[in-house]
């Protein structure tokens, strides 16, 4: 029986979120083809024991067979070495497609597989219409999701990554048959190990992370100066919010890039995003697509961001933000 090969990354002893989405995507494609889902798991990197445990449980995610790759040379992450391992698995079967999550590592590994085998690869695919032996019609994201591309993808196998948070993550099914686990000892050369991880710098992590924050207070060019951001810091402090900014605020040196929201910054998913003096360019808004509600404070009611806003205050941030801060203090105090 033909199969779709899913590349699975793990967190603890289960597939991580993006991999669970990729498994969902692979399952749908396999169903359309009447094919199996195989998985490739690399027991290397930071938590090889967790990866082994996750591999053993993949039956619950619709996987028939797991190719569990392990070996001394995979102990620390090296993109070309991990790609060599995946390429070995790809060669061992007749896979219709390799479906990978869109994480940095999986994307990089799949691009290496594509380069080594001379096959096309499509990144950030949102849907596919699989047909055996023919090019697949796919839809993929351009401009980080601000634009969609309908395309055809061929290859032996077809190589694709699944766009983040478009397909629901597969939930493990109780009572599903266990997957068979086959151990693979891949061919990894010295050249494959030239670029590799030699260590990790662990960041001091007490700040509220922008990507996980429940409330984000954002500022852009309309703040007018780097000093003006003090009022956003103050409001954010009161609301337990993270501060985010537009690219103009980082390009002007007002704020560090770590706070940038958007296509080339961070994606946020808060309950509320308060956007102050930000026009709403597509590259900014695409980073706030997952925000439940957006409150816009802007002098220009024609700014594109109003089209995405839930609530709006038309006015000058210099006057509106301090007034909101004072009102929050007043109701808190009373």
């Amino acid at each position: 029986m033909s199969a779709i090969l899913a590349l699975v990354e793990t967190a603890g002893s289960a597939p991580d979120r993006l991999s669970a989405e990729a498994l969902g995507f692979a399952g749908t494609a396999a169903k359309a083809l009447g094919a199996d889902v195989d998985a490739v798991v690399i027991a290397g990197g930071e938590d090889p024991a967790g990866a082994e445990a996750a591999a053993a449980g993949l039956g619950a995610y619709g996987v028939s067979k797991v190719h569990l790759v392990a070996g001394d040379r995979l102990a620390s992450y090296a993109p070309a070495a991990w790609a060599a391992a995946v390429a070995d698995v790809v060669r061992s079967g007749a896979f219709e497609a390799v479906v990978a999550p869109s994480s940095d590592r999986a994307t990089e590994v799949l691009a290496h597989v594509a380069a080594r085998t001379g096959q096309p690869m499509a990144a950030n695919v949102t849907s596919a219409a699989p047909v055996a032996g023919e090019p697949w019609r796919i839809t993929r994201q351009r401009w980080a999701g601000s634009l969609l591309e309908d395309a055809t993808l061929d290859g032996a196998p077809r190589l694709l990554t699944v766009a983040p948070h478009v397909v629901p993550a597969l939930e493990p099914a109780a009572g599903a048959p266990a997957a068979t686990v086959e151990r693979v000892d891949p061919q990894v050369t010295d050249a494959d190990l030239r670029a590799r991880i030699v260590g990790r710098d662990v960041a001091a992590g007490d700040r509220i992370s922008l990507s996980d924050a429940k409330v984000v207070v954002g500022g852009g060019r309309g703040m007018g100066s780097s000093e003006a951001f003090a009022m956003l810091d103050e409001l954010a402090g009161l609301l337990g919010a993270a501060v985010g900014v537009s690219r103009v605020a980082t390009s002007l040196g007002w704020r560090p890039h770590a706070q940038q929201i958007g296509q080339t910054g961070t994606r946020i998913a808060p309950e509320l995003y308060i956007a102050c003096g930000i026009s709403g360019a597509i590259q900014h808004i695409v980073g706030a697509k997952a925000a439940k509600r957006i409150l816009v404070i802007n002098t220009d009611p024609e700014a594109p961001i109003f089209k995405r806003a839930t609530y709006a205050v038309i006015g000058d941030v210099q006057a509106v933000v301090p007034a909101i801060t004072a009102e929050v203090r007043r109701v808190r105090g009373g």
Binding site: P120, A122, P135, R137, I138, T139, R140, R142, G145, S146, L147, L148, E149, D150, A151, T152, L153, D154, G155, I294, L295, V296, F306, K307, R308, A309, T310, Y311, A312, V313, I314, G315
Partner: peptide, 21 residues
């Protein structure tokens, strides 16, 4: 590949904005 056939804008439900003042 992939071979481009057509570009499309994602369907966005335009939010109904409530002006608070």
């Amino acid at each position: 590949g992939p071979t481009l056939e057509r570009l499309r804008l994602p369907v966005e439900h335009e939010a109904h904005v409530e002006v608070l003042g």
